[in-house]
């Protein structure tokens, strides 16, 4: 009897723990939408999303986040172009080519990268990358290119970790079959094992996109944060996340609500990305 009660009780405790994350997601959803929708209604959905001018302290103010939406997309694309080839090739190397001795050092280094706080990446970008880009390519250094490189570095651990486990989980028979047919080690890996891990690698890229689009502190410190339409890879840009974090401190009234609505747009982006990730993951299994 007593044992039975304890088991039931513990089952409830476990159940509550399991629902905690779902409840927080629901609460965040509710907060975002109740906070953002009044502003969307007042500004107008079309004016908000496709408006090209963001100047909340003008009289009358204008709240258009189209430059920031483009900013987020450009910077994320740049991060993918830089981070994905490096990340996927590193994963293939770690999984299939890396000698044990080197692996012992590379793997923890990659894991450590994931643990570095983003503000530290941002500071690195501000004092190292910005002057470097400015000297090599011209411009003032706070640019789409700088933010892309920094984000490309930041999404590496996500891409390497997931891609590596996707490649590792490909059945050994694929590799052995290729070798048996006379393929070299390199050919077997590149043309049988890696294609078989394709959906896992794609999933890692999608998760990397999610990380890049949601990154805030590091981007604020290197992107320049100009709230105008992007006009060149060596010119600055403001992302959705930067817009929220920069102005939240002093914003009031409609300005504040518009920032929450910016969060709603970002949230929808993240939902889309995670939806794609789930579909890919299902296909992988």
């Amino acid at each position: 009897m007593k044992k039975n009660f304890l088991e039931k009780f513990m089952a409830i405790v476990f159940f509550i723990s399991a629902t905690a994350s779902i409840i927080s997601v629901i609460l965040i959803c509710v907060f975002m939408f109740t906070g953002g929708i009044p502003a969307l209604r007042e500004i107008g959905l079309f004016n908000f999303i496709f408006g090209r001018k963001w100047s909340p302290s003008n009289v009358p103010p204008s709240f258009g986040i189209f430059p920031m939406i483009l900013g987020s997309i450009y910077v994320t694309l740049g991060a993918i172009i830089i981070g994905v080839p490096i990340g996927v090739l590193t994963a293939i190397f770690l999984s299939k080519f890396c000698p044990r001795k080197i692996y012992r050092y590379i793997k923890p280094a990659v894991n450590l990268m994931a643990g570095i706080p983003s503000i530290v990446y941002g500071f690195f970008g501000m004092v190292v990358l910005v002057p470097f880009i400015s000297n090599v390519f011209g411009g003032n250094g706070n640019s789409i290119l700088t933010a892309s490189i920094l984000l490309g570095i930041m999404i590496l651990p996500t891409i390497i970790g997931l891609s590596e486990s996707a490649i590792n989980s490909v059945q050994k028979s694929y590799y052995e079959g290729a070798i048996a047919l006379g393929a070299s080690h390199e050919t077997a890996v590149m043309f049988t094992v890696v294609p078989a891990a394709k959906s896992g690698i794609l999933a890692s890229i999608v998760l990397g996109i999610g990380r890049a689009i949601g990154e805030t502190m590091a981007v604020v410190m290197v992107a320049g944060n100009q709230a105008r339409m992007p006009n060149g890879i060596l010119r600055g840009i403001r992302t959705l996340t930067a817009n929220i974090v920069m102005e939240m401190g002093y914003a009031a009234d409609l300005h504040r609500e518009a920032l929450i609505a910016t969060g709603v747009v970002l949230f929808v982006f993240i939902l889309l990305i995670n939806g794609i990730f789930l579909i890919l993951k299902r296909r992988m299994n």
Binding site: S57, M126, P131, S134, Q226, A227, R228
Partner: peptide, 23 residues
Amino acid sequence: DRTYEEAIVYNGTNQVLTAVAGN
């Protein structure tokens, strides 16, 4: 507010100081 639209925007005094010191 006619602030130059190419102006880099920072949201803190310290970031402005670091940026000016570094450029």
